[in-house]
Design a protein around this nucleic acid. Structure first.
Lengths: 262, 262
DNA sequence: CGGTCTCTTGAGCAGAGTCAATGAACGTGG
DNA sequence: CCACGTTCATTGACTCTGCTCAAGAGACCG
């Protein structure tokens, strides 16, 4: 059973990672109503074209944004990790232009839009945190345009692994002896604009180069510096130091238990 | 000589296109201080890595966002048309993670960040417009990820032309007998993840198919439906109907005079 | 009038896609 | 507990889209 206070605390940590919160801010977050929902892998969290009424907070598990071309090809646009709001944009846009699906089993807290709007209006600090959250995501989109537009297969795959590593680490997940990357090779391909077959070959090459290993959904980075160099990865665009994040105390608890994965 | 009131009016139109403004909102915009600056093509409007102190409004001319891979390959991330704020994100992020350059000669109004922040804090309606502006841009980034990730050369080029057409039209530019697309084939390539040579061949094929013609910087769409079909273009992601835009009266005056181009 | 930028076109190459077959892991139902 | 279906990973053979390199032609500008 999930303690609702844990959910509110997770939301506080998310916002506090972006903006300095005072006690009133925290209290306001703790007053947010929400509906807890557990979803299976590939379940829709946000529907394309739908008229949104709630704003989803990813409490546990992973999810991804996707869009299809009119020929049916899929492009994954971003991956969400625990502790992220999945559709902040619905606060201001009338229609959702893409869908968000669960990547693993996941626990979602759905907050009524009206409550979120009220929160943003009454608490400037939280509004600021929302802005930063949205703008950092836009920055990640830009990086992904670079990734698919101007990098070859090896660099693309290396880069997405570096990004994932950096984000998990920033969220407080221990990454040192490897971590779970709950994506199939086909999903990885859809994220970096390659076919599953070519992702497979690319992962093998990364392994042969002694940079990363992937065993099942388990990623082990054998040579972190080498991988970053191969990827040309610089974490600036993630804006991880945007704030006194390091001063906010306890890291986000976001370990995904293995049996929870599928 | 440029009338400063025209600049303020242009800003009002931009925000009014996204959110319903009252007289106080308009007055607040007209009270914004700004510095007018004329820049040459390829001049930097925003510097990557810089600590921003001002927020740039593109009054006339075109600009583009870009980023380089560590191997020196360039990716253009978006194109701005007259009447857009070029770096709203600087209101909330400390460092700029990419640069913005003028595509043509351009006239920029630079507003001090403090004044913009004050405006957003005191005028919720304008804050809302800023949100929508930022979120629609994020939506365009997502579409570009699709473009470079999952579409072939012909579709990519067709798509970017459709996008440009739709945006110019929404801004009130007459597009019917063609318009100026002030990008070289190399720049087009950097925007859609192709080489200049291949853009050239692709444009020729689009011409042979009777869809679009490009003569110098002049674009003529010969078969609009056909082009949209070839591009698989659906304008939803631009969120042009987000608001009572159509009810805001006069369209944005955003014609770029020919001699102004280079 | 020479230099630079952009466009155009050809020839050859290679990175990534397509198609197809096989095998391992896993979950389910009989 | 086994048989079967499904999903995912792996590998080979072949194809093709888009890249690289290179050369020449306009257009424009100082």
């Amino acid at each position: 059973m999930i303690d609702r206070t844990d959910v509110h605390n997770a939301m506080v940590r998310t916002f506090a990672g972006r903006s300095l919160l005072d006690d009133d801010d925290r209290a306001a977050i703790h007053a947010l109503p929400f509906l807890l929902r557990e979803v299976r892998p590939s379940a829709y969290i946000v529907d394309e074209g739908a008229d949104p009424t709630r704003c989803a907070f990813l409490f546990d598990g992973f999810s991804f944004r996707q869009r299809l071309t009119n020929r049916g090809a899929r492009q994954i646009l971003s991956i969400q990790i625990p502790g992220e709001f999945v559709d902040l944009q619905n606060l201001h846009l009338k229609r959702s232009d893409h869908s968000v699906q669960a990547l693993t089993r996941a626990i979602i807290a759905e907050v009524p839009l009206s409550a979120m709007r009220q929160l943003a209006l009454s608490r400037p600090s939280i509004s600021n945190a929302m802005w930063i959250e949205a703008l950092v995501e836009a920055s990640m989109f830009r990086e992904w345009i670079m990734n698919v537009g101007r990098r070859n297969a090896l660099v693309r795959v290396a880069h997405i692994i570096c990004e994932f590593t950096a984000r998990l680490e920033a969220a407080g997940v221990s990454v040192h002896d490897g971590y779970l990357l709950p994506m199939t090779q086909e999903q990885l391909g859809d994220a970096v604009g390659l076919t599953a077959v070519h992702v497979n070959r690319t992962l093998r090459r990364l392994h042969e180069l002694g940079l990363v290993e992937r065993d099942g959904y388990h990623i082990v980075i054998s040579d972190r510096k080498g991988l970053r160099a191969a990827a040309g990865f610089r974490a600036d665009y993630l804006h991880l130091d945007q704030n006194e994040r390091s001063a906010t105390g306890a890291p986000v608890q976001a370990t995904l238990s293995r049996p929870f994965l599928n």
